[in-house]
Amino acid sequence: MGLKILLVDDEQEFVETLSERLQMRDMDSHAVFDGKTALAQVQSHPPQVLIIDLKMPGMDGIQVLQQVKQTHPFIQVIVLTGHGSEQDRKTCMDLGAYAYFQKPVDIDQLHTAIRQSLEKTLTDPRDSMGFDRPVDKGFYQP
């Protein structure tokens, strides 16, 4: 499996099916159904990309986004929501989301955004925890 993706949405049937489709595209995706579990998962097994819904019972997506960006600033966050307010989109992008999609989403568009967000991560000199990446000096130095 390739990229580590964590999906967070209280619509269990939706998020499990989306996760299965991402797995068919060689992504190591995993789904959880609330914000609190997502944050615990981010602490124990930080993903490379986090895909979150906004309106969920308990902790909502904006709170999750805020906390993840504080503790793991280089995890790329993609918002995928049924709630279509322009203000929400602006808030999410200001908080550091990589992309904002409305449901239903085209899987190819989402797949492309995930790949592009990873490219952004890889070109960043720091890792998902915000630490400097070790520079690969190669195996041969004449």
Partner: peptide
């Protein structure tokens, strides 16, 4: 409309999964 979007999203993913 939020609820409707969620239902459409489930239909969309399941139809997509059949295609996949």
């Amino acid at each position: 409309t939020h609820d409707m979007k969620n239902v459409l999203a489930i239909i969309n993913e399941n139809a997509g999964l059949l295609g996949d």
